[in-house]
């Protein structure tokens, strides 16, 4: 696991150096959503028996932690094809699984940081969320799952442009169609069933339930665990294939 620690250490050195900038960038889009949907639509709007802002903020946690975690894909892609620094990991006597774990952990830190910022923003908008183990575990699995998926895509795509296309085709639609901004019960049945395939659907329902002090849906939690295992194993295979 020396390789894991080394890779994680590198990411943390860079993150520490850019911390203020990173935190500001993580705050901008959630803040705009809160202003647009919170103030803009008003708190009078009721969704599933609660005001819209209270409904939306857990969705924002799921969305923001996913997108910031997934942003490691672009960084790995750039380090593979532009700076070529990824080769420093590939030529070191470390296993593919330790490379994956190092990258996944650093992605998870980004996602956790993004979630923490939304907690602060929610408090600023007068929304108090429940902080509990179920919430923490849901965010941990959400970030683990998408960090592993990010490693897979960064190993499969062959250029920065392909990486951007992947984000456009998968990450952006997921952001809006997985119960983050509105309840899936408003979907027609076929669309509801399709939404169940996306991992973010399960992450947002677990995070929302936990943040609002309700029991988390166990099936969704189980689906997150299964996706986490599959994506992590997939990431190891892809890193192995990318080198020897």
């Amino acid at each position: 696991m020396v390789g894991t620690y080394a890779i994680f250490w590198r990411e943390m050195v860079i993150l520490r150096r850019r911390l203020i900038r990173v935190m500001a960038s993580y705050a901008i889009s959630p803040l705009l959503f809160l202003i647009a949907f919170g103030w803009g639509m008003g708190r009078s709007l009721q969704v599933e028996g609660m005001d819209y802002l209270t409904f939306m903020i857990p969705g924002l946690i799921a969305l923001s932690s996913m997108s910031q975690t997934f942003s490691i894909a672009m960084d790995i892609n750039i380090s593979r094809f532009y700076w070529m620094t990824f080769e420093e990991f590939q030529t070191a006597p470390i296993s593919s699984s330790s490379i994956v774990l190092g990258e996944v952990l650093s992605g998870m830190v980004r996602g956790m940081l993004a979630s923490f910022i939304i907690f602060i923003l929610a408090a600023a908008f007068g929304i108090r969320l429940n902080v509990n183990w179920a919430l923490l575990l849901s965010v941990i699995f959400n970030t683990f799952m998408f960090a592993s998926a990010a490693v897979i895509t960064s190993m499969i795509v062959k250029s920065h442009a392909d990486q951007a296309s992947f984000n456009g085709f998968f990450i952006v639609p997921m952001s809006f169609l997985c119960g983050t901004f509105f309840p899936l019960s408003r979907f027609p049945e076929w669309a509801y069933l399709i939404a169940q395939v996306f991992p973010l659907t399960h992450a947002s329902s677990c995070i929302r339930a936990a943040a609002l002090g309700m029991d988390i849906p166990l099936i969704s939690f189980l689906v997150m665990i299964i996706y986490s295992i599959l994506f992590f194993l997939g990431a190891i295979t892809c890193v192995k294939k990318a080198s020897l």
């Binding site: 390789g3 620690y5 080394a6 890779i7 590198r10 150096r17 700076w83 070529m84 620094t85 070191a92």
Partner: peptide, 26 residues
Amino acid sequence: VVPQYLNVDGELSAYENLKLHGMLHG
């Protein structure tokens, strides 16, 4: 390994580049 293209980590200092390498090699 010294590849033909420059692949030192620009975001790290010279010392940190070497430290990362040492850590990767245990």
